[in-house]
Design a protein around this nucleic acid. Structure first.
Lengths: 183, 183
DNA sequence: TAAAACATGTAAGTAGTTACATGATTCC
DNA sequence: GGAATCATGTAACTACTTACATGTTTTA
């Protein structure tokens, strides 16, 4: 066990472990990490620059990653971070830990739950809107999956991840649709 | 528009609106509100006593609810809160607002996403564990639905809410099962 | 007599966002 | 010239949890 592990308490699905996973594939800048979040797993994780940049500084101090300034043509300089052996060790340890319980916060389900206290027209509109939003998420995720898969950029595990998102969206949409149809 | 509305900025799925929804049905104490959270919508919302009690004090100050101390036999006194007309007005306004985007945080999907960086045995175990956990959630939610439905305690909207949870769990479980079977 | 359930509340700390601040370069 | 993209970072704030503090009553 290396030094870094003793200096840190573990929190729920620490953003540090997520960053280590991305850097374990190849070096990235903070900006690129944010784009990776948006591109690949916005449907089950996200973080802002206000979290990412301070976290990267902290992780450098813990010797989990190293920073290198890279000059670019036609773009500002960027700080590219590379994972250290201690970082890889911690990441592989994370992969062995049991996954924490998923956390869902749904304003749509909250509105639905109290549906009997609103008028029927309002609730019909809410249900239709909720379904359309999920349909949009489904379409976006499916397009992304097709595109990235075509480019050979995805591992079987990444494909499974996206497909799990798709089947859940699909089940949700069908259920709402069946309720709307029966009225 | 009443005074209270101007004193407060709206945040994502404010716990205040959730409490107003519960109190709009009938008066509750803070302790009972927490139990309601656990009993009826733990799968898409939760809050601790450390959030509930200060929020109730704040809402009393905003005249959205009123407090009454109630003596009980064989139990400590409790503070029972009742919604005011201003509170009902705000709640009905909430019901009309468009639902915010759902937020999911999944440590299971994060582990899965990086699956190619761990060994196959670890990942098999992670997938099996994730499926079992979802199966447990499915069973618990189904039992709760059957029980409460039998007691005639649920509105059609509350039933829909729980069924939406069930169909999503089911889709997830089937997908993982199909992957585990094909190996 | 100890644990569990009932009941309320506060203090300290964690995790995270939004807004601000700065600045280069490209595209329209 | 203004918006969009690239790029980094900080400060103020919000929301929330955990742990602590206190106490009663019931059940095993």
């Amino acid at each position: 066990m290396v030094e870094a592990d003793r200096e840190e308490r573990q929190a729920f699905m620490n953003i540090q472990d997520v960053i280590l996973g991305i850097l374990n594939e190849k070096p990235h800048s903070g900006y690129e990490i944010k784009r990776h979040f948006e591109e690949y797993f916005s449907f089950f994780f996200d973080a802002s620059f206000g979290t990412i940049y301070p976290t990267l500084s902290k992780m450098e101090g813990l010797h989990l990653i190293t920073k290198e300034s890279v000059r670019q043509e036609g773009k500002p300089d960027k700080n590219v971070y590379t994972i250290t052996p201690a970082g890889t060790e911690r990441f592989l340890n994370y992969m062995q830990t049991p996954a924490e319980k998923d956390v869902l916060r749904s304003d749509f389900l909250m509105h639905t739950y109290f549906g009997n206290m609103a008028d029927e027209g309002t609730m019909q509109a809410q249900l239709r809107k909720g379904m359309e939003m999920k349909q949009q998420l489904y379409d976006d995720l499916e397009n992304k999956l097709q595109q990235l898969r075509g480019e050979g950029k995805l591992t079987p595990y990444q494909i499974l991840c996206m497909e799990l998102g798709l089947v859940q969206y699909d089940a949700f949409i069908r259920k709402i649709q069946s309720v709307l149809d029966s009225e």
